[in-house]
Design a protein around this nucleic acid. Structure first.
Lengths: 335, 335
DNA sequence: CTCTTTCGATACATCGTTGCAGAATGCAGG
DNA sequence: CCTGCATTCTGCAACGATGTATCGAAAGAG
């Protein structure tokens, strides 16, 4: 069927092991021998069987990526970049969707995904740090993405949630907005993306001497329809506001959709800001002011960190925590 | 390290092969023996090593998916559904991005992706049918997605491009529009998604007795920014039009963005229609009229077809061609 | 009561690669 | 001339599973 090392060895007149040595850049091979082998490989069109290599070496050169749902634009863009970065280092990415359920996240940690890959990029949503620590079998490297888990036991690559939300809120305040609604958090949230971003919001308010009003904080699923229903609730509740800060872009876009539908002008009557800077944000009408969380940096650093852990094999120091730099993207929805 | 079949066999007091037989549902095993083995498996927490199984059996239970770019919403949603459908049949999906270049598409067909998987779901963009046929090595099943290749040699799952574009155009005509600009095709396009959708457009025009005006057909990359620059070109060229048909939703949304920016009211001054019904279309402002191309059906049928080919192993009939049913989604941008 | 068939379980080879130990060669130094 | 060491290459075992052949025991046929 397929060409094997044995065929190459026969064609080159050397032993099978020498072919292996050539492929693995073993030091002590005469240039002439190496060339014979390379010629035979080229002539026969040999390609190494990755499954056999993986069985024997215990490495698959695959990274697992666990996200809740690949059709969420943020995760789709993240996955795309992670793949590109990994490919540059000759690794592949195998994606698994968890639907943000405990059961699926546990399966991803323990099941065949972690068996097939050399390490995991994990976006925990349902599990907390202890659950992950307990569930983890073996010693395959694990890098956390996002902010749900912030624990010294784990490597973590994330964004500056507090700082970015604070900067965005400060921007809205500087534009003269005083009643800034927040969509996607509960007033009592302290942890995870909602809690951290809300903390940044409160810090900015405090520095500007503006009182925090829990009535302006509207919890919601982080989806477009959540944004629109949240705005509907605000408007129907007669709650006055002059800006909406959606804790991600989907929320902000859903919110903006509902505002315009109801005849509220953006940004004249209410400014709208988001978080993530998905591609769509540039092309909404009006274009969306948002936070670019440094996704390139997140992709680059997380893959790098994971591969370092895989290849250093063992000397696991304390968990490394990386925070990517953010930038505000000031557009028409909140100039 | 990990628990192997040998450990299970020892614990259960049977041979290694009996453990294998239990796992593979071999018929002739005494219930008592089977139970002993299952108990040992449960007690030791044994899980089959997929790499070894794959090496020995030649099957990996992985499907390859080749798309140009996973961050394109249509592909992201498609990938997400394909994964879900495949998972229900105990298959995994390994995604590879081709960036729509010849070199990458060839690599995907010939390289390690096809080696690692049992079959490929392939969205050709740069290669034509002959190039694919020539590049294909071995006999691993290959199912085409999309419309770039329509050839009896290959299995194909696609959407009703002509019919759907015709129906959408008819809808715009029924709304009284007579100068319908098309973004994303050249007047001379005949094949691929642009050509097929343009053909549907022309059929609808012909049936309504409206003349085809090539000046209204604007070629463009199928991205949001392509949509906005195309509209800019139309407006700057002084070309009158009363509707814009973006050949995908990204184009339509980019177009709508530019129209609104320039003070053209949607739908009063110009209706806008798209194609794909990505999630975003429901939440744009105004919400986007578009074609739902039956993505669920595409995902379902293509995975089913590919797995059938993999498991029937051999009796490759003629290429099967499947066209999913479409539906128009009439929203605010073109009521 | 023997012979054949079916059932239930086993041993061994095998998939294609890499790790380990060691053989053969050449060259320097004593 | 022999020893010692670096260099170059080789053979065997192993990774963890499955396919094939086979073997003993039990069941059914004559």
């Amino acid at each position: 069927m397929a060409v094997t090392m044995n065929d190459v060895a026969r064609a080159a007149g050397v032993s099978l092991k020498t072919v292996s040595n050539v492929l693995n850049n073993y030091e002590f091979i005469r240039p002439a021998t190496r060339q014979k082998v390379l010629d035979a490989i080229a002539e026969l069109g040999y390609e190494a069987n990755l499954t056999a290599r993986s069985l024997r070496s215990g490495k698959s050169r695959m990274l697992g990526l666990v996200v809740s749902d690949l059709s969420v634009p943020y995760y789709a863009e993240l996955a795309s970049r992670l793949m590109t970065v990994a490919a540059a280092r000759d690794y592949r990415v195998l994606v698994e969707q968890s639907a943000a359920t405990r059961a699926n996240e546990l399966t991803a940690l323990q099941g065949s995904l972690s068996q097939l890959t050399d390490g995991l990029l994990f976006t925990p949503l349902a599990l907390d740090a202890d659950a992950v620590a307990a569930a983890r079998r073996g010693t395959k490297p694990l890098v956390m993405l996002g902010e749900h888990i912030d624990d010294p036991r784990f490597d973590l690559v994330t964004m500056k949630n507090v700082g970015a939300a604070k900067a965005m809120t400060a921007h809205l305040l500087a534009g003269g907005r005083r009643r800034i609604a927040v969509i996607g958090a509960s007033p009592e949230d302290r942890a995870g993306s909602p809690g951290l971003r809300l903390a940044g919001y409160r810090e900015a308010l405090a520095e500007a001497g503006v009182a925090f009003d829990p009535a302006l904080i509207v919890p919601s699923e982080w989806r477009r329809d959540g944004g629109s229903t949240a705005v509907a609730r605000l408007l129907d509740g007669g709650q006055p506001f002059d800006a909406v800060f959606g804790l991600n872009d989907a929320l902000a876009l859903g919110a903006m959709h509902e505002l315009l539908l109801r005849g509220v002008r953006v940004p004249e009557d209410a400014a709208v800001a988001g978080f993530d800077d998905i591609d769509e944000a540039r092309f909404s009408s009006p274009s969306l002011t948002t936070v670019a969380p440094g996704m390139n940096e997140i992709a680059e650093r997380s893959v790098q960190l994971l591969i370092d852990r895989i290849e250093e094999s063992g000397k696991a120091a304390e968990g490394t925590h990386v925070e990517a730099q953010f930038e505000l993207r000031i557009r028409a929805s909140a100039p």
